[in-house]
Design a protein around this nucleic acid. Structure first.
Length: 429
DNA sequence: TCTGGGGTCCTAGGACCC
DNA sequence: TCTGGGGTCCTAGGACCC
């Protein structure tokens, strides 16, 4: 017997995080903006019919105003922290879990079924609300893809109390639900594939479930075929308890204003390289390839467009911030052209190897082992200080001090969970 | 004026080899 | 005019997700 797979997903996660610390927002429409306050990345249910996800702020400012929406810049320090608390809570309820994204977690519940399964899901929901203040929904089924559909339904249908169990549905009941599910709502079917499917007369999840394997594989690749099998109740996507190490790490952000000079681009690049290097060390990796890219805006047509990338191979894999920064700046100097207004620069590292393996190989060739030990110790100190005193408490001077190019964050929330000075005050009347 | 960031996986096509 | 077959590796680009 296949064990039930449950997907826990927070409702309007980013918006909900702001509500946790500002209870006055409860029942009020809230939106959260992307970096640079550019687009709407999250909005509460009240606004969903009027504002699509990803709409640029300037295009929906009026509608937001008429609905008296509360607007926030994205505050990832807050979301990351609440996410960790939420995952700790739900993990208690299952022998195995996979944190799939910042607000989603798959759980397996072997031995559970029927009413017992429903009650367990309700208990998870109650604990999440009690311990983190976040509203969540849960969907149970035999595969991840079906659990996703169950979860969506649980969210949309207010009669369901946030929990839907498809695990105990009969084949006929399940087919009926799939027939009422548009094909674009299936996990793994986006706009392009949705369009292709519709052109071929496949409009619902039920129709896709019954499409011939050969046709699916040819048109939607092996991933599409897996999706179809999962719709049929055949698990193809295993639970991954330990997240696999990343194969590439990237940092790239738009500036708060266009910049022209190599010096300022360099400051931003150092900042992003430092972030990438920190993430590398966190997962115990060193990079052997580094890519730098920069671009002018592509929405404004009255300005010349320029976009370029360069790939550099490191003499030795490294996670030492100054080494990576040196390569990055070397690359930037080669692709930089005067006379353009740039809006973004970025860095991507790949060819990742385990840092330990590097150290073991040292006595054969490569950098002086003594130097490497010094580099490692130095970075451990820096990472420790930054963990303790806040990100970028210690940083390279070339990352800049003024940083007038920094992204726009006009509506930033206080750091409720990471700064003593920002703790909310409770007063007794 | 103002249009996000960070990932994964797959496929096609070219270079190269025997 | 005719011009093999099969394999690997790499890269660029597309599609998707949150």
């Amino acid at each position: 017997m296949k064990p039930p797979i449950v997907l826990m997903d927070a409702n309007n996660f980013y918006c909900a995080c702001h509500r946790v610390f500002e209870p006055k927002l409860e029942g009020q429409p809230v939106v959260v903006l992307s970096n640079n306050d550019g687009c709407v990345v999250a909005r509460t249910n009240e606004l969903k019919p009027f504002v699509a996800r990803g709409t640029p702020l300037f295009q929906c400012a009026e509608i937001l105003k008429t609905h008296k929406a509360q607007i926030y810049s994205s505050a990832y320090y807050l979301y990351g922290d609440l996410s960790a608390r939420l995952m700790t809570t739900v993990a208690r309820f299952a022998p195995q879990h996979e944190v799939y994204s910042i607000d989603e977690c798959f759980l397996t519940l072997p031995g559970f079924k029927g009413e017992e399964l429903n009650q367990h899901c309700l208990a998870i929901k109650a604990a999440a609300r009690q311990e983190t203040g976040l509203p969540v929904s849960l969907g149970a089924a035999t595969t991840k893809t079906l659990a996703k559909i169950a979860n969506q339904r649980a969210k949309k249908d207010s009669g369901l109390a946030g929990v839907l169990n498809l695990y105990d549905y009969s084949e006929a009941e399940l087919n009926e639900l799939l027939a009422a599910t548009p094909v674009e709502e299936i996990w793994g079917i986006g706009a392009k594939r949705g369009e292709l499917l519709r052109q071929n007369g496949i409009e619902t999840a039920y129709e896709l479930k019954n499409a011939p394997d050969q046709w699916v594989k040819k048109n939607l690749s092996i991933m599409g075929l897996r999706t179809v099998w999962e719709l049929r109740g055949l698990p193809c996507l295993p639970l991954e308890e330990a997240p696999p190490a990343k194969k590439a790490i990237c940092s790239a952000k738009s500036f708060g204003r266009p910049i022209e000079t190599l010096a300022e681009l360099g400051e931003a690049l150092t900042t992003y390289v430092s972030r990438v290097a920190e993430k590398l060390r966190q997962q115990g990796s060193a990079a052997s390839v580094l890519q730098v890219f920069l671009t002018t805006g592509h929405y404004r047509t009255n300005q010349p467009y320029y976009s370029k990338q360069i790939t550099l191979e490191l003499a030795q894999p490294s996670s030492f911030t100054p080494t990576l920064a040196r390569y990055a700046h070397h690359g930037l100097a080669q692709i930089y052209r005067r006379g353009y207004s740039y809006i973004k620069v970025g860095v991507l590292v790949s060819g990742l190897v385990k840092q330990e393996a590097l150290q073991l190989n040292l006595w054969k060739e490569g950098p002086d082992p003594w130097d490497l030990a010094k580099e490692t110790n130095l970075m451990e100190e820096v990472d420790g200080l930054n963990r303790r005193y806040g990100r970028e408490a210690v940083r390279l001077a070339s990352a800049g001090l003024e940083r007038s190019w920094w992204m726009k964050q006009a509506k930033l929330s206080p750091h409720y969970t990471t700064r003593w000075s920002d703790l909310p005050l409770a007063t007794v009347a």
